[in-house]
Amino acid sequence: MKKTILTTTALALSAGMVFAAAHEKTIRMGTEGAYPPYNFINDAGEVDGFERELGDELCLRAELTCEWVKNDWDSIIPNLVSSNYDTIMAGMSITDERDEVIDFTQDYFPPTASAYVAASDAVDVTSGVIAAQTATIQAGYVAESGATLVEFATPEETVAAVRNGEADAVFADKDYLAPLVEDSAGELMFVGEEVALGGGIGMGLRESDTDLKEKFDAAITSMKEDGTLNAMLKKWFGEETATY
């Protein structure tokens, strides 16, 4: 018994060495897959969206082999720091709290506006019932604004809450809400002021992974310089979106 265990370990060990020598390390990109247009699952069942296209291009420029992994939003950072994947590209705003735990590349999406969407324009966003996704920076903002915060587990449910009257308005990233408002045929509309939250969206990495961070930073810079990033932003977020 003991002997078999030893042999298997030895096998696993030598196999590991051979693999490690033969291939470059694959970079695993963590995302949520439920936040269009940043990232979502397309009809074919693959990760798709702005971040998928951007991430693939970044990997190409940094000469890395990458693959995409889906992970629940709630545990997306703990799984990164325990090395289950190497980056996060999930529409994650750069905030001070997150920056204490993980590192961010420079932003690849300009500081985002968050916006309120309601079913009628008479809603007062500072005193009404506002829906937000649990544990997002938007939820924290609403709690402080004095409005009545009601939290749902998924972004989908927050919008559903406005449609069925549970909440007066939903507060979320404007770019997530915009396509929904457009396609709702007048049922939903933007209300109140837009609010700038967070410091843009960046790619999250482990703090110890400085090499990888430099590679991706360089790739983002080169995409910003030759205008490909702007073209991609316009493709996914429309002509009026903020660019670099």
Binding site: L13, G16, M17, F19, A20, H23, E24, K25, T26, R28, T65, E67, V69, V81, S82, S83, V101, R206, E207, S208
Partner: peptide
Amino acid sequence: RQGRDFVVCQAAKLPLGNAPQWVH
């Protein structure tokens, strides 16, 4: 443990960093 990061050597990763998706 580097700060909050949990980092082990490449060979100790489970599954190995270059393993195909189905292994993960």
